[in-house]
Write a protein that binds this DNA or RNA. Structure first.
Lengths: 254, 254
DNA sequence: CCGTTCGTTCTCCATCAGAGAACAGCAATC
DNA sequence: GATTGCTGTTCTCTGATGGAGAACGAACGG
C-alpha cells in the first residue's frame, strides 16, 4: 500500500499500525468506523490496533474520538534531546537569536531530509512550533544545502534521486548540475546562503556543525529579504554563526 | 509480557513492536543481536520489525547501531502542539518565569499521570529538557494535585488504584483519606501547594487550567524552599498564576 | 588465512491478524 | 417510549504471516 520498499522482509502488521497512526494524526480526532474506512481495514482490526496502542499510551480517547497520545511526545522529546547537536547547540540558539534579532534555527538531517530541531524568533513573526519537528527537503534550504555539501557524492546522488529537486520558488535549484556547483561553492566558502530559494522574500545563512569529520547538523539565521540582505548574511550574521559553530564543534568533541 | 491488559483483544505484533521500541530507547544505540536477546525474540524477527520501522523513519542506523528516529520527534511535536492548553498557555509560561524569576511549568494529564508539556527556568538551575516529556505521578506534585482535585471521585479512585500513592519524600501523601482531605482543601482554595512532597527542599504552587468545566492542565511555579516559601506561594506567585489562568481559560473557550 | 561474530536472507509451520457478523450503547426521530 | 440508525465493541473463523532457526555473507582480528 503506502510503504512499498519493505517488500517481503517487512512486518505487515507494523505497516498497518503506522498507517493507522498516520491516519489518526491527519484526522486529529476520529472514530473507529471512519478510521477503518480511511485505512481500508475492517473495523474490528482497527479496533484491535487502537486498543493495543491505548494500553501503551500512544493513543487516547477523548469524547469518543481517538487522538495521538502524549507517549509520542515522550519518545519525541527523548529523541530530540539525545541528538548530540541539540544539547550542544541549544544555548547558542538563544544567544544568536537575541543578539542578531533574527530567527535562528537548528537542523539535523536523517534519511535525506532535514528537520528543524528547534528555533527562536525574537520578533515573533514566525510560528516556530509549526516548523520545529517538520521535515524539509534539503536543496531549498540553507541548512540543508550546507549539510549536503559535506556529504559524500554518492549520498547526495541517492538523496536527489529519492526526493528530487522540486521548485519551491523560481529561485530554487532544480537540476543536479547547478546543485553541484552550488555545493562546491558552499564547500569553498564554508557556509550556505539561501536567497529566496525556499520562500519568496526570505533569505538565510547557514553554517555546518561538524564533529569528527562528519556533519551533524546546521545552524542558520533567516529573515525577510528587506532586513536580511546578502551583505548582512555574509557579514555580521556569518561571523556570529561561525563563532557559535566553532564552540559547538568543540563541545561535540568533548 | 510487559503490557498484559490487552488480553486476547490486542495485537501481539504491536506489543512486540512496542517492546522493541522501548528496548531501543533504553539502549540508545544497539545492534540486532543484543536487541533480540533483550526482548526475547529471534534475531530474524527483530530484524524484520526494525526494517519496517526504518522504512518509516521511526528508527535509524548510525555506525551499525539502531537508534530511535526523528519521526518520533515529528509525531511528538505534533502531539504537543495540538494540545489546546499548550498554545494557550505558552506565552504565559515565559512571562511568569521572567517576572517571578522562578521555574514555571505547564502540565497536562493523561491516563492517570501528568506530563510536563513545557517549562522555563530563568535561573538555569534545573535541566528543563530532562523533565519536559516525562511522566509523573499525580499525588506528589502540585500540578497533579490541582488536576486530581477537579476530576470526578471515581476517576480519582481509579488513578489511585492503578498507580498507588508511593512516597517520594516523608512529606508525600500516601493514603487515600489524607489525599481526599487535601483535594477538598485544594477545591476550596482553588490552588494546590506542594511543600516538599515530591522533592525535599522543593516547594511549588499550581492553579488549574479549566475549559468548559473540565481541567485541561495546570500551571505551576516551583523553586527551592529557601526562596519559594509558603507565604510567597500563596501571595505573589499565586496572584500571578491566577491572572494567567484566567486569561488562558478565556482563550481556551475562544 | 582461518575463526568468530555480527547482520541479513531464507524456508517452513503454528499462530494470529483481519474479515464479517452479531451485539451493545447511545441519540435522535417519530 | 418504542423505533431507527448510528456508533464502538466482542465474537468466531480461517488463510496469511509473524516468528524460529538455520544458512549465508560480510567485517574484523589474530
Amino acid at each position: 500500500m503506502a510503504g512499498n520498499s519493505a517488500g517481503g522482509r517487512g512486518v505487515k502488521s507494523d505497516e498497518t499500525l503506522f498507517a493507522i497512526i498516520e491516519a489518526v494524526r491527519e484526522a486529529d480526532g476520529i472514530g473507529v468506523t471512519e478510521l477503518a474506512a480511511n485505512v481500508n481495514l475492517a473495523k474490528s482490526s482497527v479496533h484491535k490496533h487502537l486498543s493495543t496502542m491505548r494500553d501503551h499510551g500512544f493513543v487516547v480517547k477523548r469524547n469518543g474520538e481517538y487522538h495521538l497520545g502524549l507517549e509520542f511526545f515522550s519518545y519525541g522529546q527523548y529523541t530530540r534531546t539525545t541528538q548530540d547537536v541539540y544539547s550542544a547547540a541549544l544555548p547558542a540558539l538563544e544567544e544568536i537569536a537575541s543578539e542578531t534579532g533574527e530567527s535562528t534555527w537548528l537542523m539535523t538531517h536523517e534519511n535525506g531530509q532535514v528537520m528543524y530541531l528547534d528555533g527562536r524568533d525574537p520578533n515573533d513573526e514566525i510560528n516556530v512550533n509549526a516548523l520545529v519537528g517538520s521535515w524539509e527537503e534539503m536543496h531549498a534550504n540553507s541548512g540543508g544545502k550546507v549539510i549536503l555539501a559535506h556529504l559524500r557524492e554518492s549520498e547526495v546522488n541517492e538523496i536527489v534521486e529519492r526526493h528530487g529537486l522540486s521548485a519551491k520558488t523560481d529561485e530554487t535549484i532544480t537540476d543536479r548540475a547547478t546543485l553541484e556547483e552550488e555545493l562546491e561553492r558552499v564547500r569553498e566558502r564554508g557556509y550556505a546562503l539561501n536567497l529566496g530559494e525556499g520562500l519568496r522574500e526570505m533569505n538565510a545563512v547557514a553554517v555546518p556543525l561538524i564533529s569528527q569529520e562528519s556533519v551533524e547538523g546546521a545552524l542558520s539565521v533567516a529573515g525577510p529579504t528587506y532586513r536580511v540582505k546578502r551583505e548582512r548574511c555574509e557579514g555580521e550574521l556569518l561571523d556570529r554563526l561561525r563563532a557559535a559553530a566553532d564552540d559547538i564543534g568543540l563541545s561535540l568533541a568533548y
